[in-house]
Design a protein around this nucleic acid. Structure first.
Lengths: 150, 150
DNA sequence: GTAAGTGCAAATGATTTGCACAGCG
DNA sequence: CGCTGTGCAAATCATTTGCACTTAC
């Protein structure tokens, strides 16, 4: 339910972000940012590269990697690992959870604020300092269920 | 609180497992199995290789990889990904959750059966069929907290 | 004996890095 | 103009695979 910004808004918004974090605003970074904003499927670096390439044909894969690392450092995105060995990138940095399909590995966001309120088991008191609760649900998504039946 | 088996028990137990799944009992597999049983720290393939190597100096890393893949296929272990890009292996295949240290990346098991009972948010009803709930807590472990202060 | 399992070395796939040039501030 | 960012190619790291030899059953 996130509002998609209009093109010109993105530029203004991204300029602010770059200034705030002291990084240069480049065409490549802007387009990677744009792709990330439009993505709701937690793409891998390779997938992001392919999407950006449609707009910036001369971009290189390692620039995508470098930019993603930069974006992660400044807290613009989150790197996630799930059932795959390759990383995926999540432009949603606010606390939320994931449902992952065991078959197609598609990752979908969901929120469940109530989970924060439930007291943790006693045994964890001595583990250290817990900062975040991340829940990953696993199962078969609708599409894969369909395919299994068909 | 899992009882560690005595050496001879392991052999008997592992022979049964191999028969059950129709895989051959080899020295290498037995020793990898032993290392997994003794491990409570979710080692990577490389770490498992190093530990097995102390007992079987001629073992090769790719045998470790192949064996871990076989063990996973028959349901003896679980492959897990967390903050790292490299896989770790969990000899505990019963449903349980993890606390991960954001600094040292150490993974510790914990169980929280109550989490199963809590009804999931409505919006997930239409996602598909959810089979498993996995919770990952993140924070700083005791050791890393100490080091940060010191 | 025969197919499955192993070790070696080489291939692969994801990600990182050194270097020279380009472009933002 | 100076330094950060980019593109290219080559390096690295985790993991996989082809092949010839070994071994469990």
């Amino acid at each position: 339910m996130k509002e998609k910004s209009v093109s010109s808004d993105i530029l203004v918004e991204f300029r602010k972000i770059c200034e705030k974090h002291g990084i240069k605003l480049t065409y490549q970074r802007l387009e990677i940012y744009r792709v990330l904003l439009e993505a709701d499927d937690h793409p891998s670096a390779e997938e992001i590269f392919l999407r950006v390439q449609e707009r910036v044909p001369t971009i290189s894969l390692d620039t995508v990697y470098r930019t993603l690392a930069t974006f992660e450092k400044v807290g613009l995105i989150k790197k996630i690992y799930s059932l795959d060995d390759k990383a995926r990138f999540d432009p949603n940095v606010s606390p939320h959870h994931h449902v992952v399909c065991s078959k197609c590995h598609r990752i979908t966001d969901f929120s469940w604020p109530e989970i924060e309120k439930i007291p943790l088991p006693e045994e964890l008191k001595e583990w250290g300092e817990i900062k975040e609760r991340y829940l990953e649900l696993r199962g078969l998504c609708k599409d894969c269920l369909q395919r299994e039946k068909g």
